[in-house]
Design a protein around this nucleic acid. Structure first.
Lengths: 249, 249
DNA sequence: AACATTTATTTGTAAGACAATTGAAGCACC
DNA sequence: GGTGCTTCAATTGTCTTACAAATAAATGTT
């Protein structure tokens, strides 16, 4: 071996498995280990770090939890550096955002404000670049949202899909990735709102305004409609909160 | 015990530690386990899941890697459900975004476009709400960027701090969290650009335009300055790429 | 009552063993 | 010579047992 990409010196007084995980993670982040590289076997690593195999395994599991590596059994198996796909990054982004929102008592209006601000940022690009497919996806979700037998969670899911199509229309995968966290992480909060037939109607009409504006490539109109949607959503949430407070009095 | 928040039935044919991790993670996400709850001890968990202690430990390390739990040694120790702090979420957001950018050959202009689009989304809020402190932080970074002995990486770091102050001015922690990924993850890419004295001067003057606009609470001017900054940055990057291509010819 | 000591509990680490998986090498057979 | 089966070796997945280290509560001592 000409040059070993991993530094094997660790401090025996501090948590070993996390240090080992950090050492390997560094090698990946700095590019010393690249995608599909195979790590040494667990026994090898144990020898080089001068720790036991279970300790090495704990470190590897940490990396696997971040999907930095994947493991494979068998003769040619081992741990391989994983390509962090968009899908995987999306998933992590969403779970992190969801946890952050659920565990920190974020006010609904704060999350809502952030979400719509970010979404408005995508509108000019989406209006300029959206393809016919993106527009069709938005129309399809609007159609679904009009079905009277759609459940509340189904309505919310379709809502997410609609906004996702809007964002994807911008044709910037980094933007789509970032927005996934903001939009999808809010779904649990949104699910707490019960949608009356009347409010659904209002939301669908705003969605239609947005789709029309995107179709006409009119970003100003789309942004205005989004702002109206934000205002309306905030109003709905306030009503729900007020009702709940009423009941618990 | 009245009701156990964790489901202990797992499929013995598939990866045990990941199933155990998933079971506990579910209990946390659904709120059955709440912040600062103590998990059963490792031996307890091993018994209940009917697996060995090392297997339980691997599962716990997975959760620790996502900072969903923290562990403590000693008599009253154990694994506790962690509050996912903003700082922690920030960090994870940044490492995920950084890895995504570095391992997927994202074009500089794609990342740059996304970053400035999101940043412009914060400007109206920041112009309206920024405190004197935020403004002072921006001015301080501009001053630092004027020091001729500042290294290129130092310049980039100050750049990040400047934009961070701008975003924080919006007073929306969710927005700050989301933007951290977009802005800080780009730093490695930005570091590849060598800043001439001339280009630094140009950037600083654009920063000053932004700060002036935010001070005057003029969001339109701030957005325009940000757009100019985006254009200028993209131009710099193109030059660097072209030069590099020249050399490698 | 204050302080030192012991003890019980729990995580952190080690060592060794076996099962399961899987690709590769070897070998018989056509 | 080629093809299909068998065996083998490497590697991860899991279990068992054991001990070390940390920590707080219980206990004993002065």
């Amino acid at each position: 071996m000409t040059h070993d990409p991993v530094k094997y010196d660790i401090d025996p007084d501090r948590d070993l498995s996390s240090q080992i995980a950090a050492a390997i993670r560094d090698a990946i982040i700095t590019g010393d280990l690249i995608v599909d590289d195979r790590l040494p076997s667990e026994s090898d690593l144990a020898e080089r770090f001068r720790v036991s195999r279970p300790t090495v395994r704990e470190a590897l599991k940490r990396l696997a939890a971040q999907s930095l590596i994947r493991t494979q059994r068998g003769a040619t198996g081992g741990a391989f550096v994983n390509r962090l796909s968009y899908e995987e990054a999306h998933r992590q982004q969403i779970t992190t955002s969801t946890l952050l929102l659920s565990m920190n008592a974020i006010r609904f209006d704060t999350a809502c404000e952030a979400r719509y601000a970010l979404e408005r940022a995508c509108t000019p690009l989406s209006a300029a670049r959206r393809s016919a497919e993106h527009l069709a996806a938005m129309r399809a979700e609007i159609f679904r949202q009009n079905q009277p037998d759609l459940s509340d969670t189904g309505f919310c899911a379709s809502d997410v899909a609609f906004h996702r199509a809007l964002v994807d229309g911008a044709g910037n995968p980094v933007l789509s990735y970032q927005l996934a966290g903001a939009v999808e992480a809010m779904q649990p909060l949104m699910n707490m709102i019960t949608f009356t037939a009347r409010s659904r109607e209002e939301i669908v009409s705003l969605h239609r305004r947005i789709a029309d504006a995107i179709e006409a490539r009119d970003s100003t109109a789309a942004e205005a409609a989004l702002s109206d949607l934000e205002t309306y959503t905030q109003g709905l949430a306030r009503n729900v909160m007020a009702e709940r407070a009423q009941k618990h009095r």
